[in-house]
Design a binder for these strands. Structure first.
Lengths: 205, 205
DNA sequence: ACATTTGTTAACCAAATGGTTAAACTTTAT
DNA sequence: ATAAAGTTTAACCATTTGGTTAACAAATGT
């Protein structure tokens, strides 16, 4: 009997490991807990992934792999700037709503061990700013947008999209939002962020 | 012989615990490591703070206590909006430059255990948005700024100020910045963020 | 049919870890 | 001077944890 991809053991482990690692981090997660979550014997974790570190690396690499392409889309496509800015929030927020633990997980572990990135950077899996930079320069000389560095604009776009998911516990309390209120706030940001940014950089006639 | 506050044992422990916990988190930190960092015997940690959890709580409470007042300043002072926005970045970035691990630490642990916040919220240590909300409404009816909710503006201000410190490892790679380059980028943001926000919300004549 | 490889489990192990204890040393009070 | 209280340490302990082993079961190939 052939097992479907969803129910084969290796995949069950990976999915379980994702859930546990993303919520508790490398050190907070227990191998036994992951085995229980996957509904299998603990020894199987080692049979398939050899060690906790390697299992973690598999989960982490996959997590980064999910976040990177959407950034690449912003930086290296030929669409008009306004279109790209308007669509990245829509995309990113929809995506992060489905994976709310991801930003915390990725950035926490990245800070703990920036080595992960160096590896990926060398594999050139990570996009650069050159494309966006050219696009901005063009718009600036045309007088369409104010002078702004690609670096700072990029940092702003990422900040506005990602931080609300990382800061959610604090933001919920300060804005006195219920879970539904906060979800509505986030939903609103799909268009609000782009308007905010375009307002900030557009030169008014 | 009277010991100064800086060199008494309890304080040495707290300072050491801060350094270790902020870099490695609750589960990543080892009591022995904290003892070594403080230059004392491990049993002393328990003598002064009873358990790892309580020591952690002391460090964490202090960390939140450092970040909250500056937010309060933004939300509940009578200064003009533009002045407040221009000064919070200056203040916050200067502060975070001195405590670069703080945002990661605080938000990671807050996501792991939001209970901490509930406790502080009940103590009314956390500022609310009412003051800012009134100030915005006033400016909106005067036609000075575009209609914008206090919640969204607040989220944006915090995002733009705090995220760069959380996302630093990724941002450094994508922007291809050396440590000095990145520090310069951050420094630039002390004024850049305020300009960006004021541009975004000001109504041009 | 049967041997070989692959997958799975229960039991086990050594190291690490948070925490305790009892004794020694210091400071303070009388 | 000396007792009491506070501080510090080395040695110890129970538990948890990542990882291993050896035996068993299920597929797979011939």
């Amino acid at each position: 009997m052939v097992k479907t991809k969803e129910e084969n053991t290796e995949n069950k482990i990976l999915e379980a490991a994702k859930r546990i690692f993303q919520q508790k981090g490398l050190f907070g997660a227990r191998m036994q807990e992951i085995a229980d979550e996957a509904g299998i014997n603990k020894a199987l974790l080692h049979y398939y992934f050899r060690s906790k570190d390697l299992l973690f690396e598999a989960v982490f690499t996959q997590a980064i792999g999910m976040m990177a392409p959407k950034i690449d889309n912003l930086l290296n496509s030929d669409m008009p700037l306004e279109y790209k800015i308007k669509h990245i929030s829509e995309q990113y927020i929809t995506f992060l709503n489905k994976h709310p633990y991801l930003p915390n997980f990725v950035f926490h572990e990245l800070n703990r061990n920036p080595k992960f990135l160096e590896k990926m950077a060398l594999q050139e899996k990570l996009p650069g700013l050159d494309g966006l930079k050219r696009q901005l320069d063009q718009l600036i000389v045309e007088g369409k947008i104010i002078p702004i560095s690609a670096e700072q604009l990029f940092i702003n776009i990422l900040s506005l999209n990602i931080f609300p998911f990382i800061g959610k516990p604090l933001l919920k309390v300060v804005t006195k939002s219920s879970e539904e209120d906060f979800e509505a706030l986030i939903e609103e940001r799909k268009v609000f962020i782009a308007d905010f940014i375009m307002n900030a950089i557009t030169v008014k006639s």
